[in-house]
Design a protein around this nucleic acid. Structure first.
Lengths: 221, 221
DNA sequence: ATCGTAAATATATTGAAAGTATATCGAACG
DNA sequence: CGTTCGATATACTTTCAATATATTTACGAT
């Protein structure tokens, strides 16, 4: 376990940014955050530096740090990249999944089916379920770089949902999508796995928002 | 310009890791690095933390930091992901390139054609040319997340070349590949752009190495 | 005489450095 | 073979320095 306070500060700040408790463009007041989190300046500063590395925080020279802005264009770009990568890893997973992965698939589907009725309005639970779904698929792809980066992109998607205040509800249809993807992976059908994952990430509210916005780009310069 | 010493330390350490001057599993001695780089412990520590965030350095608990290992399996995984993403961004670039991108394409091709004869044995120049090629394509894709992550993955590829001591030479064939990709993007032919990029990343020495190694994975657990 | 602009100083915030504490690994001894 | 003690390197705190901004003051022009 990481017992570093900088890790604790990093996780806490990252969580707050994701859930828009620290909204885009919010200024990070070092002194207030230190006394708020009960930490010294160094671990907090290290956490901010790591978040800057990730692009979640931007430095304003010597005038402080602010939470990175989250424009609709950015959300769309992050989401289109995530969609491509999720489909890619789903295809890889179909080729590489082993017995242990299949066990995790079954456990996941059983647990979600059993618990979903009790969490119809529990946003946090539904996000956690979706995150676990994508994680077990990525794990089966056996590509740690894809695993790591998709975890980051998932975080950006969550942030988009909070920033744009998009209500999501995990309906039966989503469960069916989970099952479609995992079944295709089980059958080693890479094309079907990719297609099912693409479908899951198309009916997703994020995609709806993306489609409703035009990603225009200046044609000159 | 970033005048932070931690940025300087980060860039220098990253460069040394990429060129295998700091080879995989090398221990990072804080005190020796500080006097070597002429910096204090704080900026060096911040740089190491950022490299750990990137996965280029791993913490050994409280017993020090070492350069992350670079196994053949890891190199293959990073490369397969990079290849997928490069093709994806090439396709996006074909849809989104603007006049400014096309000017950069022409300038790049002209410069490389003019200078390549003088650098037939200049590894650094050839790597820089390849990096610029991929960067201008990624720029045209107008997806800053893909741009950022591909830059990281390119660095990993460079590191693989140095670690595995693979000699590369930029032959006329490579120039033709550059031209094929950029022409397809100019013609707004996404499929052709993807195919040409895939071809470029297949005759690449990295791919040869990848093909020569089997990416076996334990089938249990 | 008043308003505007520019320069200088003061203040606040980040960046760096050094000092202190703590944990881990290894070795030695019971 | 287990436990304890010591060495070493990290993690955190604290202090100091640098820089940018804002405020104030002075000078000039209208």
């Amino acid at each position: 376990m990481s017992k570093r306070k900088s890790d604790e500060a990093y996780g806490e700040l990252r969580s707050r940014i994701m859930m828009a408790i620290l909204p885009p463009n919010a200024v990070l007041d070092e002194r207030r955050l230190t006394e708020d989190l009960g930490l010294g300046r160094t671990p907090l500063r290290e956490a901010v530096l790591r978040l800057e590395q990730e692009g979640l925080v931007v430095s304003m020279g010597r005038r402080g740090y602010v939470v990175a802005s989250a424009t609709p264009a950015d959300m769309i770009r992050a989401y289109e990249l995530r969609r491509e990568l999720e489909c890619f890893t789903a295809g890889l997973a179909a080729e590489r999944r082993n017995a242990g992965d299949l066990e995790k698939f079954d456990a996941f589907l059983a647990r979600v089916a059993a618990e979903m009725d009790a969490h119809v309005d529990d946003l946090l639970w539904q996000l956690a379920a979706d995150e676990e779904f994508h994680r077990i698929v990525a794990d089966a792809s056996d590509n740690r770089f894809a695993q790591q980066y998709l975890a980051f992109l998932f975080g950006l998607s969550v942030r988009s949902l909070y920033v744009a205040r998009i209500p999501i509800t995990l309906v039966q249809e989503e469960i069916d999508n989970y099952r479609s993807v995992l079944t295709a992976i089980r059958m080693r059908d890479a094309a079907a796995a990719r297609a099912a994952m693409a479908r899951h990430l198309t009916i997703n509210p994020m995609q709806v928002m993306a489609d409703s916005l035009s990603g225009t780009r200046p044609q000159a310069g």
